[in-house]
Write a protein that binds this DNA or RNA. Structure first.
Lengths: 107, 107
DNA sequence: TGTTTACGCAACCCTCGGGTTGCACGTACC
DNA sequence: GGTACGTGCAACCCGAGGGTTGCGTAAACA
């Protein structure tokens, strides 16, 4: 089975600790602007903007403009998709190993 | 909530497409050596060895020596742990957004 | 014993991306 | 209007790590 295109982005996005912190921070606030998040995470607003761009690209976050500010909220769909993907692989490989084990035992 | 130490390694390990391909390849074979995997993935055996090191460090794979070769198998536990982590976050944030939404609607 | 094969170690290259600073622009508010 | 604040854009720095080549070592087998 081919890894779906989005999995690349999602896992790559989740790979960075700062981005996971950002997701947590946004989740805790419900929604937040890049400037506000700068007080939650020890990096520059610009760095946060870049991270939000990556998260947005991965579909993990979505921003909406209100006047001069942009509020970001977490999108959970891709997250659960990624979780499902992991679980499916784990189950698949578990089953295969079990089969091999039974064969090896001369069943 | 603090991201558990292992999540760092797991997501970082899963971030690389080549490593996910390796996991898939190992899973498909049941178990495999670095040399064998070199024919599944378009990189050098040495690169694969490095990747297997990362996967091993993350607890996603475990190697066992048999004579002069080392066979690697997938370990699914960390995988399911990561899946659980994602699902928990998704559920948590979904609930919070739902609450906020109800409040905003003046409920 | 000689040859083949699988592995381990080390050095090296080079791109990618996380982080920064600096500044320009637009929107809110007085 | 002027001022303050939030964004957006661009250039730059620099370390991490994915990839390579080269070589040495040890096990399997004739």
């Amino acid at each position: 089975m081919r890894t779906p295109r989005s999995a690349d982005d999602v896992f790559a996005a989740l790979a960075d600790p700062t981005r996971r912190e950002l997701l947590t921070a946004i989740g805790a606030r419900g929604s937040a602007t890049a400037t506000a998040l700068a007080s939650d995470v020890p990096v520059t607003r610009q760095a946060i903007v870049k991270h939000l761009g990556v998260l947005d690209e991965a579909g993990l976050v979505s921003g909406q403009r209100h006047g001069r500010e942009v509020r970001y909220a977490v999108r959970t769909q891709r997250l659960t998709e990624a979780a499902r993907w992991l679980e499916a692989r784990a189950a698949e490989w578990d089953a295969r190993l079990e089969r091999i084990k039974r064969l090896a035992e001369g069943g």
